[in-house]
Simulated assay, not measured.
Amino acid sequence: MSSRPPSRARRDPRPDAYDIDGEVVAVRRSARRRRTVSARREAGRLVVMVPATLSAAEEHRFVEQLSRKMRDREHRGHAGDSALETRAAELSELYLGGRAVPTSVRWSTRQRRRWGSCTPATGEIRISEHARGLPDDVFDYLLLHELAHLLVEGHGPRFWAELAGYPDLERARGFLDGVAYAQDQGLTR
């Protein structure tokens, strides 16, 4: 008979949080997570979710990468979003009589197949990062298009009547249709 005490589960030597450039970044490990690593803000705090099977070095590397990427995205987004909101307000006033008042207008890195989107129920407008390089009149049309969705859902006659006052409407629509066609045909980089 052995007199050894019952074995205890070994404590994971990895920390529950890292200090990355002065910000405390929490780590949440999951036994179910196999390959993916992701990050999000929870109550203002950055949380990185990782597979429990990562080594301490891999985990630290991913936490550093994702926290810097999130900080860069947030910094870039705040500067750009305010200019986007200002332009949306100007276009709403100029072409829609100031009736379209979004709750937020922001850039989106998630939209790959759409130039923009609008959620009328919440008043949120998102514009694809890919739209940054569009000519000014085409970009204004894109933003105005999403603003009009705050007034009229769908693309029926009432919707197009809201946009009828925009002088470059047909040219901008044609431009975006041409870009979409080129992308579908693999003619762009």
Rank of each mutant, 00 (worst) to 15 (best):
A57G: 07
R126D: 08
R99T: 07
Q65P: 00
D168Q: 13
E74D: 15
A100P: 05
E170H: 14
E124L: 10
F139V: 00
T119L: 07
L94W: 01
Y141K: 03
A121Y: 01
R114L: 15
R61I: 00
E58T: 02
L94H: 11
S55Y: 12
S117D: 10
S117W: 01
W115F: 14
R158K: 09
R45C: 06
E58A: 13
A43Y: 06
H78I: 05
T119W: 03
D81P: 03
E170T: 13
L151D: 03
R45M: 06
R73G: 10
I127Q: 02
R68D: 09
R112V: 14
G174V: 06
R113C: 08
P120E: 11
A148H: 03
A52Q: 13
V101H: 04
H145D: 00
R61S: 13
R110V: 08
R126N: 12
A131D: 08
M49G: 14
A52V: 06
A52P: 02
C118T: 09
R73S: 12
T103I: 01
Q65W: 05
A89S: 09
Q111V: 08
L46R: 08
M49D: 10
Q65S: 12
R158S: 11
F175T: 09
R173K: 14
L169V: 01
P102D: 12
E74A: 10
A56G: 05
P157A: 09
R61V: 04
F62K: 10
T53Y: 00
E59G: 06
L91Y: 04
E58H: 10
D168L: 07
E64I: 02
Y166M: 04
Q111D: 12
E74K: 05
R132F: 00
V105N: 08
A57V: 13
T53V: 04
R110L: 09
A43K: 15
T53K: 03
I127L: 13
H75Y: 04
R106A: 12
H75N: 10
T122M: 07
L66W: 08
G156K: 02
D81L: 02
F139L: 02
D140S: 05
A79D: 08
V152E: 15
W115S: 11
E129T: 12
G116T: 07
L169N: 02
A161T: 06
L151V: 01
V105W: 08
R45L: 00
R126M: 11
E74P: 03
L143P: 02
A121S: 15
R87E: 03
P135F: 03
G98F: 02
E59K: 02
V63E: 10
R99Y: 00
H130E: 13
H75V: 11
E162Q: 14
T103S: 15
G174E: 11
M49V: 10
E74M: 13
S117E: 05
P167R: 00
R113E: 13
G123P: 12
A172S: 15
E146I: 01
P167M: 04
G174C: 06
I125L: 15
Q65V: 04
H60Q: 15
E64N: 06
T122E: 12
S108K: 11
S67D: 07
A56D: 14
L176P: 05
L143G: 03
R68Q: 08
C118Q: 08
G44M: 04
G123Y: 12
A56L: 07
R45W: 00
H130Y: 07
R99I: 04
